[in-house]
Amino acid sequence: MSSLPIPREPLRRVAVTGGTHGNEMSGVCLVQHWLREPGEMQRPSFTAVPVIANPKAVAACRRYVDRDLNRTFINSNLTTTATADDPYEVTRARELNQLLGPKASGKAFDFLLDLHNTTANMGTCLIADSIHNVFVMHLCRHLQLQNPEQRCPVLLYQRPGEESYNVHSVAKNGLGLELGPQPQGVLRGDIFSRMRSLVTSTLDFIELFNQGAAFPAFETEAYRFVGLVDFPRTEDGNLAGTVHPQLQDRDFEPLHPGAPIFQMFSGKDVLYEGETTVYPVFINEAAYYEKGTAFIQAEKLTFSVPAMPALTSSP
């Protein structure tokens, strides 16, 4: 595995962002709480900063105002001269890039944890850019070991050669938490508590790393995006069917050729015609209707993560 460089110095600046999507309430409420009472986030070796990523969307309890903020952190948006006609999220992305970045620079925050909810049955999902970030892979392993009662699958959002575009890409290292199912604009106590515990475990891991802990090599698996599947539609673009009951809520379970994926309003089943087994994720996600996506196809990878040696510099 060709790996990104492992940090050789303690991570000093950490950010936790909520409200990247303004109607995903676990992260919104946690960050709002920590803005009032930040003590829970602090550790001896680093400073952790809570940030509401999209305050206008949070105020309106909407996913976004003009466009999806979590698809906006590409260089063409961050480096283009600002104009009065820019979408709000492009302006906000530039502000966050200055606050937490600049992206791909030595001045960027050392780590960013971005908090999300989904209406899909994704459970406790850890969203990373690629398998090549050894620090993040060890963090994911730590979260899995700390939460043995939960599956905690790792989902790799970035395709080979694709520019990173989400909020946590502005930091040197980053991870997204995607917890569900939870309706948009609703706060569920169980998911709120689970997310709070995961944030605590993440901050504790960074503290362990900063204090000189070493982490052994391990074998693991992750899921990588390979394609999008839209709903069946009529000629004028309206829905002609829905996610099949046999597929609904089965995120991260294998989908074999010939299995039903949609049920037409006529009653006819639509079968998966692919030649290989895939793993659907974000099945029937409410926010993806506008994106023309009924679910995302992923492939399962098994790979080795090298050991992460202890820091040689003192905390």
Rank of each mutant, 00 (worst) to 15 (best):
I6M: 13
I6R: 10
R8V: 14
P10I: 10
R12P: 04
R13M: 02
G18V: 05
G18D: 03
G18N: 04
H21F: 06
E24T: 05
M25A: 08
S26Q: 04
C29E: 15
W34Q: 06
R36T: 11
E37T: 13
G39E: 15
Q42F: 10
F46K: 08
T47S: 12
A48Y: 09
V51E: 03
V51C: 05
I52P: 06
I52Q: 04
K56Y: 10
K56F: 08
A57H: 02
V58P: 05
R62E: 14
R62I: 01
R63S: 07
V65W: 05
D66N: 14
R67M: 15
R71A: 07
F73I: 01
I74T: 14
N77C: 08
N77D: 03
L78H: 10
T79Y: 10
T81M: 13
D85Q: 15
Y88S: 08
T91P: 00
E95G: 00
L96S: 04
L99V: 01
G101R: 04
S105I: 02
F109M: 09
F109I: 03
F111C: 05
F111N: 03
L113M: 08
L113I: 09
L113H: 08
N117Y: 08
T118Q: 02
T119I: 10
A120I: 06
A120D: 03
N121F: 12
M122W: 06
T124E: 11
C125F: 01
L126I: 02
V136A: 01
M137A: 07
L139N: 04
C140N: 01
R141Y: 08
H142L: 03
H142M: 03
L145A: 13
L145P: 01
P153G: 02
E162I: 01
E162M: 12
S164L: 06
V167T: 14
S169F: 04
A171Y: 09
E178C: 07
Q184K: 11
V186Y: 13
L187N: 11
F192V: 02
F192S: 08
R194G: 08
M195E: 15
V199R: 02
S201D: 15
S201G: 05
T202Y: 07
L203K: 09
N210P: 11
E219C: 12
E221R: 12
A222L: 06
L228T: 12
V229S: 10
V229K: 12
P232Q: 07
R233T: 13
T234F: 11
D236I: 03
V243G: 00
V243Y: 00
L247Q: 00
D251S: 08
D251A: 03
E253A: 09
P257V: 03
P260M: 01
P260T: 01
P260H: 01
I261M: 08
E275K: 14
E275H: 11
T276E: 15
T277E: 09
V278F: 09
V278C: 09
V281Q: 07
I283L: 03
N284L: 00
A287I: 09
Y289G: 00
E290M: 04
G292R: 01
F295Y: 14
Q297E: 15
A298V: 11
E299A: 13
A307P: 13
P309W: 10
